[in-house]
Amino acid sequence: MLIAATAGTLPPALRAPLRQTFATRRLDLLAALVRVDRDAGHYIPDFLTPLPPGFESRTAEELHAVATTPTWRIAGELNVAACGELANTVGRTLPRGLIETDEQQTAERLATELEQVWLHVLAPRWPRIRARLEADVADRLQTVGRQGFAAAIESLDPRIDWHDGAVRLHGRFEVEVREAAVTFLPSVFITGAATVIDPVPQRAVPGYDPEQPGPWPYPQRRPPMFVYPVAPRKPGTPAQAAREAELIGRTRARILAAVADPATTGEVAGRLRPSPSTVSYHVQILHRAGLVRRTRDVRRVLYQSTRGAG
């Protein structure tokens, strides 16, 4: 969500709750770093969007990664945000008055503020978001199996391609990153691909010359991360819906259409008016047939149609 805010593409449904959370919870430092206006492209410190330790990483793990960011990285990235070349290029600078003199205190404060954003903005929406993310990853893996890795990469976004064994993203900046690995993350918040590329060594080290040989000026370089938009769902045409009703029955076809977005059997029953037990019976049949996928939440089970996904 923060990356969508930096790109200026945060959905309207989230802009108001995020602003309200900033104001009511007094998240002053995070509010200074993140603008939620439409087309408000800017840079925020990359340590606020850490590499996830795994696909099933927990929120507590990612907040811990923010809070325990090495001080050299905090200082370097805050310097980029406050007065670096990149900040000047995209038109966003950070008020220095809000920064703690102790970098670790700054990171811990930001982790605490991020937790409030999670609790009040994202957590209520997370089951459906997670279901869409998992569905997209499953579809991308099928593309890898059917068409190969290059085809899967080029299906992520029109600006991303695979060329001579390397991933390229066509954008406003020209940067060559010689890393052995890249992390790809799906997002339901962005409309176009975004990158997180370590800005610290080139822009925050006094006297650093990338053309000169020598040791890397910092202990560790962060691997690049590509964030790509989850593919939009492709609704069936009326003719397809009619064929489905003929093949699987009108009730199951209606249920299949009702789970184009992730939903529980109770929610489907509320929309279509059959009993929850009837919906559950038909959903289980659709699931065994591979027409819906199931995602387990802590308290609920969500179902989503596999028709036209990817």
Rank of each mutant, 00 (worst) to 15 (best):
225 M>P: 01
171 G>E: 12
183 T>C: 07
243 R>L: 10
238 P>M: 07
237 T>P: 10
210 P>S: 05
194 A>P: 00
169 L>N: 11
244 E>Q: 15
202 Q>D: 13
223 P>K: 01
222 R>C: 01
200 V>D: 02
217 P>I: 02
177 V>H: 06
181 A>I: 10
177 V>S: 08
195 T>R: 05
228 Y>A: 07
185 L>D: 04
235 P>M: 06
237 T>I: 10
171 G>Y: 12
178 R>H: 15
185 L>G: 03
174 E>I: 10
187 S>K: 01
238 P>A: 10
188 V>R: 01
181 A>Q: 13
234 K>A: 11
223 P>C: 04
174 E>M: 13
189 F>G: 00
183 T>F: 06
182 V>C: 10
208 Y>F: 08
198 D>I: 03
205 V>D: 08
191 T>S: 09
221 R>L: 08
215 P>S: 04
194 A>C: 02
217 P>A: 07
226 F>W: 08
223 P>T: 03
220 Q>Y: 11
171 G>D: 15
204 A>S: 15
217 P>F: 02
194 A>M: 03
220 Q>V: 08
197 I>N: 11
237 T>V: 08
220 Q>C: 05
239 A>C: 06
187 S>T: 08
233 R>T: 14
219 P>M: 06
179 E>W: 07
241 A>G: 15
200 V>Y: 00
221 R>H: 12
210 P>V: 09
179 E>D: 13
171 G>Q: 12
230 V>Q: 01
174 E>L: 11
243 R>I: 09
229 P>T: 04
186 P>V: 03
194 A>W: 00
221 R>Q: 12
185 L>V: 10
179 E>Y: 09
240 Q>R: 14
173 F>S: 14
211 E>F: 03
232 P>Y: 09
174 E>P: 09
205 V>K: 10
212 Q>R: 14
203 R>A: 09
185 L>F: 03
188 V>C: 09
222 R>L: 03
189 F>V: 00
172 R>L: 13
224 P>Q: 12
213 P>W: 01
201 P>Q: 05
222 R>H: 02
197 I>S: 10
195 T>I: 11
226 F>S: 06
